[in-house]
Design a protein around this nucleic acid. Structure first.
Lengths: 190, 190
DNA sequence: ACGAACAGCAACATCGAAGTATCAGTTAGG
DNA sequence: CCTAACTGATACTTCGATGTTGCTGTTCGT
């Protein structure tokens, strides 16, 4: 293992990751130089922190997925009725996903570390959905794999919803929209 | 305008477009050579038919979108109750989308021609959803823009559903799943 | 304050892909 | 059948991105 980084180096790493998110969101094939420029650094410094391009995007994936896990666990998904937990988790996830829009929209994990984190995320989700089903929130015969897939898709779509303010979308309002659509669809109620 | 192509040249164009779909689906950054090889042709021939890479992917987008329009219109979306039309359109779209999975998953139109086709597709969809709403299929206060967005997302997700057979998914079964989810979500009925 | 870690600069080497040109051989179509 | 159109082979040129090295100056940590 490598020694701990110095404070300025760690700042650089963070700046690179955040810049990479911004730049790659607009052009997934952006060059290392574009990323470096967006980070206020030189291409060489980027190469010092991340040996190659793949290492950078891998680190980006791990970082974003970890933040997603933190956001989920911060919502304490097991300490309230499923509906309440679902709202809290969804709102928190919304916040993180809006920040790491690009990285988290490509779930494909090229690293074992990223795959492990992804498994953890999926675990949280299936737990919650299972609980929701037992509490009568979901139909008893609902296909939970399909439900999870739809839930993920709705999370992404809600972020792409052409709202009034671009980035300042209210996470709670979006969470309400997502959960309402997930549970009831667009058909008439009652 | 250029003259009509000879029969073998037209076969080549088709082969290139189909190969590009297959290859780019696995690697969006695949080289022209990989595409040419998959088409059973030489890179030079590909360059003769499509001046540059962008021209190729643009043509791909136009071709796939046109097939999508044909599939929609073949379903006669205005000649039956909205629910029936919705089923027919969805099943037909499913068939085309499974063939042009990659191209149609990137709706971004870089060409005015592609944009026009996309507008036409959207027009068909909003017409159908409007009719569905008036016939009581959708809630009177449903946000049709959001509904359309969800509908598109469900179409994509259904294709990525890890089913038993990979490509031989039954379009009618998938259409049923999509529409059922769109109208009722995953919550309990009644 | 002093050494170690860090960032910038400049210059390289390498590489793959894109695109072009010419010529020779093959195929389509009136 | 005979010309025009098409494909393939070979050989270029160009270009941008990647990754590396040595050096100088700066900043952090103790």
């Amino acid at each position: 293992m490598s020694r701990a980084l110095r404070a300025d180096a760690e700042r650089s790493v963070r700046a690179i990751l955040e810049a990479a998110e911004r730049v790659l969101a607009e052009d997934p094939n952006a060059s290392m130089e574009q990323i470096a420029e967006a980070a206020g650094l030189t291409r060489i410094t980027v190469h010092r922190r991340f040996a190659n391009r793949q290492a950078l995007v891998d680190a980006l994936a791990v970082s974003a997925k970890q933040q997603l896990i933190d956001a989920i666990e911060e919502a304490r998904p097991d300490s309230a009725p499923a509906l309440v937990a679902l709202y809290r988790v969804t709102a928190n996830v919304m916040r993180v996903k809006s920040t790491w829009r690009f990285t988290l929209s490509h779930a494909t994990a090229h690293t074992s570390a990223a795959a492990a984190l992804w498994e953890e995320i999926n675990g949280h989700t299936v737990n919650l959905l299972n609980r929701a089903q037992h509490e009568g929130l979901l139909a008893p015969d609902a296909d939970l794999d399909w439900t999870r897939q739809v839930y993920y898709a709705l999370l992404s779509e809600a972020l792409n919803k052409p709202g009034t303010d671009p980035a300042a979308q209210d996470p709670d309002a979006l969470a309400t929209l997502v959960i309402d659509t997930l549970l009831h669809g667009a058909g008439p109620r009652g």
